[in-house]
């Protein structure tokens, strides 16, 4: 009896839509190894010229922030309005600013 297919590791797939854009997460798939993951990703996620470059990453290799600590984790950026250009009042007749 063969191993169930789910014993193939899960890969997350990222595709660069065209030159000049970031790779964007498009979904996931299972594959026995990195090379098959890449080929399967091509067949599954770029059947209509959706990409010029693909990354596959073992899902187990991704470290993610936890949703439970969402508020405290992002709190440091929450109270720093002075990081935004709109924080600064500039007279309207000052050009190019």
């Amino acid at each position: 009896m063969s191993e169930p297919r789910s014993s193939w590791p899960l890969y997350e797939v990222f595709v660069r839509g065209k030159r000049g854009l970031n790779h964007v997460h498009v979904g996931s798939l299972h594959a026995p190894d990195d090379e098959m993951a890449l080929r399967n990703a091509r067949d599954l996620y770029t059947r209509r010229n959706e990409g010029v470059s693909i990354w596959v990453v073992p899902a187990a290799a991704i470290t993610a922030s936890s949703p439970d600590e969402k508020d405290p984790f992002f709190a440091p950026s929450g109270d720093k309005v002075y990081r935004h250009p709109t924080f600064y009042a500039i007279p309207e007749d000052v050009p190019h600013l």
Binding site: S2, E3, R5, S7, W8, P32, D33, M36
Partner: peptide, 14 residues
């Protein structure tokens, strides 16, 4: 099934 087995065996060997 044999394809899945072969791919798994190949990955393990590599």
């Amino acid at each position: 099934a044999w394809v899945r087995e072969a791919a798994t065996a190949h990955a393990a060997k590599r």
